[in-house]
C-alpha cells in the first residue's frame, strides 16, 4: 500500500471482446493507445477480469471505468455513472466469473473507495458472439473517447 496522497489516474476498459458490443470498454482502451492523453494518465485493458488488472489500488486518485451498459433502447448512448449503480456482489461462484461487483468489494477493502470511481457506460445493441462492434456503438466511439479524456483531464487539472 502506498503512502501519501493518492495520485494515479487510471482509465480501465473492461468487457468480453468475443461478445460484440460487450467488449466496448476494451475497444475504447485500445483506441486510446493511439491518442494523446493528459500527462500521467494510465490506460489499462481489463478484459473480463477487472479485479486483477490494477495492481496496487491504494494510490489511485481517480478510476475511470469504461464498460458496456445493458440497453434501454439507446445503443451508443454514453452514460456517466457512479459506482453505486453496480448491483451488490452476491453469488460469487467463481474467480472465473469475478465481475465488476466483486472487484469493487475487493478494491474497497484495499482502500479504493467508490467516491474515487466513475463509470463511463456505453449503451449496447448487439451482445452476441462476434468480435466487431455494432454500427451504432462504433459510431459513438468518438464521443466516448472525448468523454473519457475530458474526465481524466479534469482530474489532472484538479491535482495541479
Amino acid at each position: 500500500m502506498s503512502k501519501g496522497e493518492p495520485r494515479r489516474v487510471v482509465i480501465l476498459g473492461i468487457g468480453n471482446l468475443l461478445l460484440g458490443d460487450e467488449g466496448v470498454g476494451v475497444h475504447v482502451a485500445r483506441r486510446l493507445a493511439g491518442v494523446e492523453l493528459p500527462e500521467g494518465v494510465e490506460v489499462i485493458e481489463g478484459g473480463t477480469k477487472p479485479v486483477e488488472s490494477l495492481g496496487s489500488v491504494g494510490d489511485i486518485a481517480k478510476l475511470i471505468i469504461v464498460d458496456a451498459v445493458a440497453g434501454q433502447g439507446h445503443p451508443g448512448a454514453v452514460y456517466r455513472l457512479p459506482a453505486s449503480v453496480v448491483p451488490d456482489s452476491e453469488a460469487q461462484l467463481s474467480l472465473h466469473e469475478f465481475t465488476l461487483a466483486e472487484a469493487l468489494v475487493d478494491w474497497n477493502l484495499q482502500g479504493l473507495d467508490e467516491t474515487r470511481i466513475v463509470i463511463i457506460g456505453v449503451g449496447t445493441q448487439e451482445v452476441d458472439w462476434g468480435t466487431n462492434l455494432s454500427p451504432e456503438v462504433e459510431a459513438s466511439l468518438p464521443a466516448v473517447l472525448e468523454t473519457v479524456i475530458a474526465e481524466a483531464a479534469a482530474e489532472r487539472t484538479k491535482r495541479e
Partner: peptide
C-alpha cells in the same frame, strides 16, 4: 487496523456479500 476498519465500515453499510 486500516483493513479491518474498512471491513467494518463495509459491513455497517449492510454489505454482507461475499
Amino acid at each position: 487496523d486500516q483493513g479491518m476498519l474498512r471491513l467494518a465500515e463495509f459491513l455497517q453499510r449492510g454489505k454482507l456479500a461475499p
